[in-house]
Design a protein around this nucleic acid. Structure first.
Lengths: 465, 465
DNA sequence: TGAGTCGGGTCAAAGGTCCC
DNA sequence: AGGGACCTTTGACCCGACTC
C-alpha cells in the first residue's frame, strides 16, 4: 500500500480512535511529530525555508529515531532496520515498556537499546504510526509440513489402485485382435473385477480397521458402480467399444441388445465426459474412494467412521482439482450418472439371470444382485440405499421380487453365505489363503483363465476378507 | 485497495480502518485455528453455520478472491491488483504453498496475506487460469475467452423459489393439528408440487429459451427428485414427520408401511444431513437447479446448453459454500442419496398404482412414472438415465413391464399426451391459459382445495408450459 | 480514434528469517 | 529473548498492445 508521502503529518490525529483503551502506550498517542523532523521528511521543503545545516540528502539517510543509517521510510518515518523491527515487534506484541529513569533517555545508535520506553516514544514522535504495522502474514520459509485432514492420503489410494491394475492392458493392443464378449465373458470379468475390488479395499488401512460386517456391507453396497467406474476408465482410450478387464470388448452394436445398451450409456454418459475432463489417476482414485465409503449403506454399523472417510476422500479430490474451476463439481456430479448406469446394469444382469441367459454365480449374486441375508435384525431401518435391494430385495414388502418374479423363478436361499467361513480356503495353488501372505494379484484374477476362475471356490465376500 | 495519490485527506489508511480495537496482534482473530482433528471438519460438527452472504451488490467491482475493490478482470476473474499480482507471481514461480491450518482460511482484504495456500486456491476457484499468465514480455493475442461463466444468478433462483413457496406454512403451525396423509393426499400433494415445479422453471429465463421438447424433457426427467428435495426441505424443522406441501404429514410409523418407509429414508438420509449442514436458502436453490439441469436426460436435444446451465449452478453453489471446507462436496454428494430415495418413491408409487391402492392421474404418470411416448425416433439412443424408464419403461426390451407386470395390470396407452396441445385450455376460471398473463401462483396449486385440483384438466407437462 | 481492458513490469515499503 | 542485518513479498501505479 502506497501512501502519499506528503500527508504524513495529518495521519497521526486518529490514533485515539483506533486505540485499544487498555493499550499501555496510550500516552504516546497524543504526541505530535516534531516540526523540525517533519520538515526534514518532506523532500524539497526544507531547502526553501529552513536554513538547515544538514543537507537533506543525508538526513533522509539517517534514522529519525537513533540517527543510524536509515534504510528507507518505515511506518511513516525514515529509520534504520533496527528501529523498524523494534517498532513492529512492539506494536505487534502490544508491549508495555516503562522507563527506569525520567523518560528523558538519549536514544542514539549506541544507547537505543538501553531504554525501550524512550525508544518507542521516539518512534512515535518521529512519525511512526502503529496503523502502518500490518497483521502477521504467512510464513515464507518452505518447510514441508504434512497436513492430512485425516489419515487417508493420495499416495495410499494410488498404491492400492496400482496394485489392482492390469499392466498387460497398458500396452494397448490393437482392438481388432480383441474378442467380443458374450454374456459369460461379461460375468467372468465382473467377477474378476469384484475380487480385485476386495483386494483394493484391503490395501486401505482405514478400511481394515472396520468390523467385518461393515467391510462386507461396504463391499456389497456399491460394487456395481465400481464395475462401471472401472470399465469406463479402462475404456477411455477407445471410441466405439467398452473394454472389459479380461480383455474382451463390448461394441455398441452387433452384440446383444441389452449389453450394448448399457455399454453405450457407459460411453456416452461416463467415458465421454471423463475424456473431456481428462481425468487424472489421482482424481480417479478419489472418486472411487468416495463411491466406496458411502455412509448410506444398508446394514452399516459404523456410519460416522465411513462418513469421515468419505469426507476425507472428497476433500482430497477437492484439493486435487482445485486448479480448475468447476472441475470438482463436475466430477462429483458424474457419480449420480454412475449410479444410474450401474442400476441399469444390475437390472439387465438380473433379467439375464431370470431368463436363463446368464449364469450368475454366488459372488455376483451377493455383491451385485443385493442378496441381503447378512443383514441381521439390528439393521438400520432407514438404510436401504442400494438399488438392488430396492428392486429385488429379500425384504418382505417387495411385491416385485416376491409376489411376481419369484413366482416364475424361485430365488435360491443364500443365507449360507453368512455362515462362518473357514480360515483357510480349499487348496488351490492359484489362490491366496488367509493364513499366507497377501500375494493375490491381478495375474491371479484378471488374467486367470476363464475355465478356472469360474470354478473358484470363493463365492462370498466374507471369504475374501 | 487503491489510494488516490492526489488526495491528501486519505491519511487514514485502510489498514487503520481495519485495525480492530480488540485486535490482539498475536492471534489470527478471524481464523478458526483448529487442531487437526477430523471430527471438527465433519459438517455436522462445524461450528459456523454460515449465514447467507449478502447478495452480490455490484459484484463486478469486487475482487472475487478477497472482496477488495477490483481493478478489472485478470486471468479470468474479477480481481484486485493484489490478487492479480499474487496469482501471477505464484504461477510464474510455480510456487507450492502450504496451509498451516486446515485449508479453510478466510481470504478477505484483511487476511489475504495470512495464508498463501488458501489465497491461491481461491484464485483458482474464482476462475483464474494458469494459462492466462504469460511467460515474458510476449503477448498472446488470444483475448476474449475463459469468462462468461453464465447468466444464472443466485438472485433469479431465489426469486423463483420464493415465488413457489407456500407462505402459509411458514408460520409453522402445531404439528398436532395436521392430519396424517393417506395415499390420495400424497398423490394430491405431489401433483401440486409438480405444478409448482413447472412454475418455478418458468421463472428461470434460461429455461424459457429452450425448445418446448427440451423443457418437457427436463421437467420430466428428475421430477421425483424435486419432490423429495422439496419435502425434505419443508420437513427440516421437524423431527418425526415428513411435511407435505398440502400440510398433511407422514409419520414414520402408524401409516402404510410403504409410505413410512420412504418417509423414514427421507428423514434419515436427507433431512438429517441437511439439518447438520444447516443448509441455506441459497444453497438449496443451487442444489435444486443442479438437479434440474441434468444433461443426461432422455430425449434432450440441447445437451450442451443444459450442461452449461448445470455447470453455472454448481459453480454458484461452490461459491456460496466456499467458506467451509468440504461443504460443497457434502451437498453434492447428497444428490446421489436423493436419486436413490426418489427412485424408491417412484417404485412405491408404481406398486401402489399397480395394486390399485393409488389413483395416479396422467400428470403423475407422465412426470413420475416415466411415460416416454414423447420420445420420437430421433431420441438419443444413449440417454436412458431416468430411473422410471429403467424399471417401467415402454421400451420393448423391458421384460418387467411388458412381459410380466403388464400381464397382470395392462398399462394404458399414453401416447395421447404428446398429441398437439390446444393453445387454450378448457375453460376453467382457476387455470391460467396460454394466452393470458402468468398468474399461476401457489394459491392456485398448493392451497387449492383437493376436490378441485384433483379434477384439474391439466394433465400433461406440455399443457403447463 | 480514443477510451477501455488486460496482459506486462517496477519498486517502496510492507513482510519474514535467523544468527547473534 | 529480543535485536537487527538481510532477504522476500506485496500491491499501487505505470506501460503498451489490443479491442470496440
Amino acid at each position: 500500500m502506497k501512501i502519499s508521502g506528503t500527508s504524513l503529518n495529518l495521519s497521526v490525529t486518529d490514533y485515539g480512535i483506533t486505540l485499544d483503551p487498555t493499550f499501555t502506550m496510550l500516552e504516546f498517542d497524543g504526541l505530535r511529530v516534531l516540526p523540525v523532523q517533519t520538515d526534514l521528511l518532506i523532500p524539497g521543503h526544507a531547502s526553501a525555508s529552513a536554513p538547515d545545516p544538514v543537507p537533506q540528502q543525508s538526513s533522509m539517510n539517517l534514522c529519525a529515531i537513533c540517527a543510524d543509517r536509515a534504510t528507507g521510510k518505515h511506518y511513516g518515518a525514515s529509520s534504520c532496520d533496527g528501529c523498524k523491527g523494534f517498532f513492529r515487534r512492539s506494536v505487534r506484541k502490544n508491549h508495555a515498556y516503562t522507563c527506569r529513569f525520567s523518560r528523558q533517555c538519549v536514544v542514539d545508535k549506541d544507547k537505543r537499546n538501553q531504554c525501550r520506553y524512550c525508544r518507542l516514544r521516539k518512534c512515535f514522535r518521529a512519525g511512526m504510526r502503529k496503523e502502518a504495522v500490518q497483521n502477521e502474514r504467512d510464513r515464507i520459509s518452505c518447510r514441508r509440513e504434512g497436513q492430512a485432514v485425516g489419515t487417508l492420503t493420495i499416495d495410499v489410494l494410488l498404491q492400492a489402485e496400482a496394485f489392482t491394475q492390469n499392466p498387460s492392458q497398458n500396452l494397448m493392443r490393437d482392438i481388432n485382435t480383441k474378442k467380443i464378449a458374450c454374456v459369460g465373458d461379461v460375468c467372468e470379468s465382473m467377477k474378476q473385477q469384484l475380487l480385485l475390488l476386495v483386494e483394493w479395499a484391503k490395501r486401505i488401512p482405514e478400511f481394515c480397521t472396520l468390523s467385518v460386517d461393515d467391510r462386507v456391507a461396504l463391499l456389497r453396497a456399491h460394487s456395481a458402480e465400481h464395475l462401471i467406474l472401472g470399465v469406463a476408465r479402462r475404456s477411455l482410450p477407445y471410441n466405439d467399444i467398452i473394454l472389459l478387464g479380461n480383455d474382451f470388448i463390448i461394441p455398441f452394436r452387433g452384440t446383444e441388445q441389452e449389453m450394448s445398451k448399457v455399454a453405450s450409456r457407459i460411453f456416452e454418459e461416463l467415458v465421454r465426459p471423463l475424456k473431456e475432463l481428462n481425468i487424472t489417476d489421482t482424481e480417479f482414485v478419489c472418486l472411487k474412494t468416495i463411491v466406496f465409503f458411502a455412509p448410506d449403506c444398508p446394514g452399516l454399523q459404523c456410519v460416522q467412521a465411513v462418513r469421515r472417510l468419505r469426507f476425507q476422500a472428497q476433500v482430497l479430490l477437492d484439493e486435487a482439482t482445485s486448479e480448475q474451476r468447476g472441475r470438482f463439481g463436475e466430477l462429483l456430479l458424474l457419480l449420480t450418472t454412475l449410479q444410474s448406469v450401474a442400476w441399469q446394469m444390475v437390472e439387465q444382469l438380473q433379467l439375464m439371470r431370470l431368463l436363463g441367459k446368464a449364469n450368475v454365480d454366488s459372488l455376483l449374486m451377493e455383491m451385485l444382485l443385493g442378496e441381503e441375508a447378512t443383514r441381521g435384525p439390528e439393521a438400520l431401518p432407514a438404510s436401504e440405499s442400494n438399488p438392488e435391494a430396492l428392486i429385488f430385495s429379500t425384504a418382505a414388502e417387495s411385491v416385485l421380487s416376491r409376489g411376481i418374479l419369484t413366482e416364475h423363478i424361485p430365488m435360491p436361499n443364500f443365507t449360507s453365505v453368512i455362515l462362518p467361513v473357514p480360515s483357510t480356503l480349499p487348496e488351490d495353488p492359484l489362490l491366496p489363503t488367509h493364513t499366507g501372505p497377501e500375494v493375490f494379484t491381478h495375474e491371479q484374477a484378471a488374467d486367470m483363465p476363464r475355465e478356472m476362475s469360474s470354478s473358484l471356490a470363493m463365492p462370498t465376500v466374507h471369504t475374501c476378507l
